[in-house]
Simulated scan of single mutants.
Amino acid sequence: MIDHAHDLASVRIASDRLLIAAAALDNAAVTEPSRLPGWTRGHVLAHLARNADALVNVLEGRPMYASAEARDADIERDAPRPLDVQLADLRDSAARFQNAGATPADWARTVELRNGVVDAAWRVPFRRWAEVELHHVDLGIGYELEDLPAEFVTREIDFLAERFRGHRDVPATSLADDEGRTWATGGGADGGPIAVEGSAADLLGWLAGRRDGSALRVAGGQLPTLPAL
């Protein structure tokens, strides 16, 4: 079982790092495009705040979001807010998530996320950690995939390789980073085996839809096109 307390501490560190970096922005920068198509930096910050509250809902046994439409509407509503409001909301929602995580609970229980996805409660803090780290990169303010904590990078590759394992649209694919770590994914589509090698940051960027994979070394076929997360 994953150490949820360790992951909660990692979420706190990542959230503080993001808040310090975002505080260097100004109101104009919040309205500028992020690296996510169609989203400004304000959209990213608003999403992070609402995601924290949504995961509190998960931990407390409520639906993650009232509906997909409500989730999107909340992000659109909150995206144009000035920087100080964004930062206060992000800080307060992060504290609510930490408080929910500190409440004694059965961490082996099953919880429900979006779209009927279920998972063990002990994996929820890592899911939040991933949201904070990857969306910090998405802000485009100097924090890159290469700056992510090494532990997080390895575990997120683990998570995404597992997510795509057996996927009907992904051929059998082996992954290897420059440190010699290996993973297997795909296997549900014709073709392969395909071998993909590169830096851990580039592998994560491709798996997470943050890089096109052009820096990766590919043998046995073309680099697979991965489904959207």
Rank of each mutant, 00 (worst) to 15 (best):
R168W: 05
L36E: 02
G191H: 08
R17H: 14
L36I: 15
D106M: 09
D92K: 11
A195E: 15
Q222I: 08
H4L: 05
S10V: 01
L229G: 08
P104M: 14
A150V: 13
D138P: 15
L55V: 11
S174P: 08
Q86A: 13
A184L: 09
H4T: 06
I2R: 10
F159Y: 10
P104K: 14
A120N: 06
V118F: 07
A100W: 09
G188V: 03
W129H: 08
A22Y: 03
A66T: 15
V124Q: 01
L148F: 07
S93F: 02
A29H: 05
I20P: 04
F152R: 07
A201C: 08
I157P: 01
E131M: 09
A184Q: 14
A100T: 15
T225R: 12
D202E: 13
L59K: 07
D158K: 09
P171N: 10
A24Y: 00
S10C: 03
V44G: 06
M1S: 12
H47N: 13
V118S: 11
L113Q: 02
R91V: 00
V124C: 00
Q222T: 11
A94K: 01
G221L: 11
P82Q: 14
L207G: 04
A161V: 09
H43G: 00
D78Q: 13
L87Y: 03
L148T: 00
L216N: 03
T31R: 15
L229Y: 11
S34K: 02
S67F: 02
E144L: 14
I141Y: 12
R77H: 14
D53A: 14
D7W: 07
L134I: 07
V117W: 00
R217V: 15
L48E: 06
R41P: 06
R35L: 13
D158R: 04
P149I: 15
G198S: 11
L113H: 07
W122E: 10
D138H: 15
T185D: 01
N27R: 13
P171K: 13
A29N: 04
G38W: 00
G198V: 05
A161P: 09
L55T: 08
H135D: 07
I2Y: 04
L45Y: 03
V218Y: 05
P171C: 12
A102E: 11
G198A: 08
A29Y: 00
A28R: 05
E131S: 03
A120G: 10
A79F: 05
P80G: 10
E32P: 04
I194L: 04
L87H: 06
P224N: 14
P104W: 12
A66C: 09
A54L: 03
A24G: 10
L87Q: 02
W107Q: 11
A102P: 07
T31H: 09
D92G: 13
V153L: 10
A73G: 05
L175A: 12
G186H: 00
R155H: 10
F159I: 11
E179H: 10
G61F: 02
G209I: 07
L113W: 01
V132E: 05
Q86N: 11
H4Q: 13
V218M: 07
G61T: 04
P224T: 09
R77E: 11
V132L: 05
V137E: 04
R114Q: 12
D3L: 03
